[in-house]
């Protein structure tokens, strides 16, 4: 009989069980998140070794370097926007790809969610099929398609639509195409999930109340699907921000994005602390963005109720 167990002991058992159940999660967070992050944080305050690695002397040089450029030759500090430019370029690229993914992804998700239930899974499957192939290979394939002498330009030339090949490969536009292509399903799937659960009787009700199509979309469907849109946007925006393969291949390695900047510090530039600092700065920005979104979402949910 449970009444026979003293309440204190019951409480203690409960605590123990809870701790045991939580331990896998805590271990994963501690071992795979906190510990590596701590290493990155520590490294960002160390001195770079000439051939890579770090020297154990504490310094904030890496963070200073982010905003101020030591003149390459006489060591004076000058305010420099070079790295800020890379960050803002990455933000513009990521935001643009997120917007385009939304413009393509929302109608796609709407289309899939409004098919008969039996067909939907097939459509979802089709969206994910390209993801069975490695990202690197898909990006190289995209490069082959859009380059100056690739099939896309040949087709447009032979149809007489253009006289000169359009330069897509090795431009920022090319990087954008690569990002959209890479992350589109991450937009489609969460939106699809919310539209699928959407109660279409609300749309009928709106029409009965003389709403036009635009109002229905703007005032009914979009607000109720906002969680999916926000989830999808985050899933596209965050990996785009740190993208590495698309700028390297489709951008020709000329216009760095944050991911390339960080990778470069660990290879050619051999400045691990600066790479670590750049990663920390990126993470902070993403975290702030997430908090901002979370708050907004929280508020809008309240308003809906």
């Amino acid at each position: 009989m449970s009444a026979a167990v003293p309440p204190v002991r019951k409480e203690r058992n409960n605590m123990r069980a809870r701790a045991a159940l939580m331990s896998p999660a805590l271990l994963i967070i501690g071992g795979f998140l906190v510990a590596p992050l701590f290493v990155v944080l520590v490294y960002s305050f160390l001195t770079p070794g000439t051939y890579g690695g770090v020297i154990w002397e504490w310094t904030t040089d890496a963070y200073v370097q982010f905003l101020f450029e030591k003149d390459i030759f006489d060591e004076t500090l000058i305010f420099s926007t070079a790295y800020l430019q890379i960050y803002s370029r990455s933000f513009v690229q990521a935001a643009a790809s997120t917007a385009i993914c939304f413009l393509i992804g929302f109608p796609t998700a709407y289309f899939i969610a409004t098919r008969p239930a039996a067909q939907r899974n097939m459509w979802v499957l089709l969206v994910t099929v390209p993801y069975w192939i490695n990202l690197l290979i898909r990006t190289i394939a995209m490069l082959f398609l859009v380059r100056d002498n690739g099939p896309l330009n040949h087709l447009l030339l032979s149809w007489g639509i253009i006289d000169e090949p359009i330069h897509i490969a090795y431009t920022n536009f090319g990087v954008g195409i690569g990002l959209v292509y890479s992350y589109l399903p991450f937009m489609v799937l969460p939106i699809y999930a919310t539209i699928e659960r959407f109660d279409f009787r609300l749309v009928e009700a709106a029409f009965d109340l003389y709403a036009d199509r635009w109002t229905v979309l703007w005032k009914i469907i979009l607000p109720l699907c906002a969680p999916g849109v926000i989830a999808g946007s985050l899933l596209v925006f965050i990996p785009s921000l740190g993208a590495f393969i698309a700028p390297d291949l489709l951008g020709g390695g000329k216009n760095l994005m944050i991911g390339n900047l960080i990778a470069m510090q660990f290879q050619a530039s051999r400045n691990w602390p600066f790479g670590a600092a750049a990663a920390m700065i990126l993470m902070t920005i993403v975290l702030v963005t997430l908090i901002f979104y979370a708050r907004r979402q929280g508020r809008s949910t309240v308003r809906l109720h």
Partner: peptide, 17 residues
């Protein structure tokens, strides 16, 4: 030498960024 390598690295980073 080490100092030359550091200068080269900075010129190179400067070029690619």
């Amino acid at each position: 030498e080490d100092d030359v390598i550091r200068l080269y690295d900075r010129i190179w980073t400067n070029l690619l960024k």
